[in-house]
Computed example of a mutant assay.
Amino acid sequence: MRTHLRTASTAAALVLAALSLTACGGDTDKADKAGGTSSSASASASATASASASASASGSVSKAPAKGTSTKDTSTGGGTGGAASACTTKNTSVTFIASAHHAGEQEPAAATVKVTNTSKATCTLVGASTLVAKDDQGKAEPISADTSANGTDAVDIKPGASAQATVLYADLNFEGSASAREVCAIQASTVEIALPDDEGRTVKVTKADGSAGTFNVCGPDVKFDGFGK
């Protein structure tokens, strides 16, 4: 009977020992798992911080544009538009065409000043243009006129296009004899024309067909109208 009790007690002790070991093992596994998770999280955070620091040091960090922010390149020359440049000696040619008809007592002669845009961009005429005519022989004082009365409005001239202005003058001397009617104080083969805020240029006087002409001016009243297309 004692042997049976001793055997049962021993068996019970072995069972309790096994349960105790299992419990300890379970706690160890949980600790290992918890430790592993914590280690992985720490390693991941460390790697992320290291990568961010490296990227910041090399200047390669890029951020997405904030909402409503344009990513279009707005550097100089990257866009189009803006104000047109002024028409000057650098981007235009000028022609002076003497009147094809003599003046009458009630109607003046009409010469034409033609400005052509020779560039690849639109230019603008705004302000007063001036005209100076000198006698080829220097026998009379030069005469001058400008468009300040009605030539200050802006006129855009596209590439290859032209703008024209009329010069009204008397090319006959109505007070002289019939033989001297066409003899004027100013007989100019060239004139000087300056566009607004530009230097003057010497322009040859031509006829309508392009051949050489003369700007005969018999009186001081010369009217330089504004430019129009």
Score class of each variant (00 low, 15 high):
Gly226Met: 00
Gly35Met: 07
Asp146Ser: 13
Thr71Gly: 10
Asp29Ile: 12
Leu19Thr: 15
Lys229Met: 10
Thr206Phe: 00
Phe224Cys: 02
Ala12Arg: 13
Thr69Glu: 15
Ala194Cys: 11
Thr118Cys: 11
Thr147Trp: 02
Lys207Glu: 03
Ser40Tyr: 09
Asp29Glu: 14
Cys184Leu: 01
Gly228Met: 10
Asn173Val: 07
Asn150Tyr: 05
Ala51Ser: 14
Val113Thr: 02
Phe174Gln: 05
Val61Thr: 11
Thr71Lys: 12
Thr95Pro: 03
Ala23Gly: 12
Ser75Phe: 06
Lys63Gln: 05
Gly160Pro: 04
Ala47Glu: 03
Cys184Gly: 00
Ser54His: 11
Thr122Pro: 04
Gly219Met: 06
Gly59Ser: 11
Ser60Tyr: 14
Arg6Asp: 04
Gly59Glu: 11
Lys33Cys: 06
Ala185Gly: 05
Gly35Tyr: 03
Thr88Ile: 06
Val205Phe: 01
Asp136Phe: 02
Ala100His: 13
Ser129Leu: 03
Ala66Cys: 05
Thr3Trp: 01
Val15Glu: 06
Leu5Arg: 13
Phe96Asp: 02
Ser99Ala: 15
Phe224Ile: 03
Gln187Thr: 15
Met1Arg: 13
Lys139Tyr: 05
Gly77Ser: 11
Gly226Asn: 01
Gln137Leu: 12
Gly226Ala: 05
Ala47Val: 10
Ser148Gln: 08
Val203Phe: 03
Ala41Asp: 08
Ala111Thr: 01
Cys24Leu: 13
